[in-house]
Structure formats: structure tokens, C-alpha cells
């Protein structure tokens, strides 16, 4: 067991966990932040995407100890109170989710895309979502939501 210090959604937290504990399990099991989901065991589906020091990573492919001292942002940290992050709102407006299981990872990835590309075109969004699987939407409305979310984030910046 080791004691791991993390900063999650702006709060300093400590997790007491096995060395093998993945960041995703630390978030879900130890911190009860269950919005970060696990959809595969081969680092392919992207449901577990969170930001570590401002960059989207798959939280199933990094040990919690590797993230010690890092600033971690999860889906739970996006909205302020009842006010949604513009990307969250865009997913609602454009019906960018159906079952909602891949959605937290999609939204975290979408924000990362905007952080790096500003206002990406459709082709860029499609290419950048290569690491996120959705089985419900055919991606069609996710693409629309990300483009619209990017516009809104740009307007707010």
C-alpha cells in the first residue's frame, strides 16, 4: 500500500492504494468519482479519458502513483454548480450521447481537442476522436457537438 497525493478537480486528495492501482480505479473506487468509466482493458475505448496536467490521457493506462503530484481534471470537475461547461451543453443540444457511457471520456477528449486546435473542422474532430469508441451514436452528432462546443468555448475565451 502506498499513499498517493493527487490534486483532483482543484482539491488536494490522498489515496491509500496498492502500487498497481490504476488512476481510473483510484478515481472510481477510492475517490468515488464514478463518472470516469472503464470500457475496455486494452487502452482502446477512451471511456476513461481524463486530463492530467491539462492533457487528455487514458486513466486506465497510467498508475495512480504515476500521476502523483499531478493536476487531474475529471468529468465531475467541468460544471460549476448547475452551470454546464459549454462542451457539456453542446453534447445535450446536439444529441451527442445516447446511453451516455462513453460520454464523459468523449467530453474530456473534446475539450482537449479544442485546447489544442481552437475551432477544429469536422475532419480534424473525426481524426482526433480516433481513441474514443462510441457504439450508439455513429459519432455523427458527437462531431456536431464538438464543433459547436468549440465555437462556444472560443466565444467565452
Amino acid at each position: 500500500m502506498s499513499r498517493i497525493e493527487l490534486r483532483v478537480n482543484g482539491r488536494n486528495v490522498e489515496v491509500e492504494a496498492d502500487g498497481r492501482t490504476l488512476l481510473t480505479h483510484a478515481l472510481r473506487d477510492h475517490l468515488r468519482l464514478t463518472g470516469t468509466h472503464i470500457g475496455c482493458d486494452t487502452s482502446q475505448c477512451g471511456s476513461c479519458t481524463v486530463h492530467v496536467d491539462g492533457k487528455a490521457v487514458k486513466s486506465c493506462t497510467i498508475l495512480a502513483v504515476q500521476a502523483a503530484g499531478c493536476d487531474i481534471l475529471t468529468i465531475e470537475g467541468l460544471a460549476s454548480g448547475r452551470e454546464l461547461h459549454p462542451m457539456q451543453a453542446a453534447f445535450n443540444d446536439f444529441h451527442g450521447l445516447q446511453c451516455g457511457f462513453c460520454t464523459p471520456g468523449m467530453i474530456m477528449m473534446a475539450i482537449d481537442i479544442v485546447n489544442r486546435h481552437g475551432r477544429p473542422d469536422e475532419a480534424t474532430v473525426r481524426a482526433e476522436l480516433e481513441g474514443n469508441l462510441c457504439r450508439c451514436t455513429g459519432y455523427h452528432n458527437i462531431i456536431k457537438a464538438v464543433c459547436a462546443g468549440a465555437e462556444r468555448m472560443g466565444e467565452m475565451a
Partner: peptide
């Protein structure tokens, strides 16, 4: 890989 993998 993909964007997340490229970050690590």
C-alpha cells in the same frame, strides 16, 4: 496511436 496515447 491516438491523441491520448501521444500525450504519454
Amino acid at each position: 496511436g491516438d491523441a491520448q496515447i501521444r500525450h504519454r
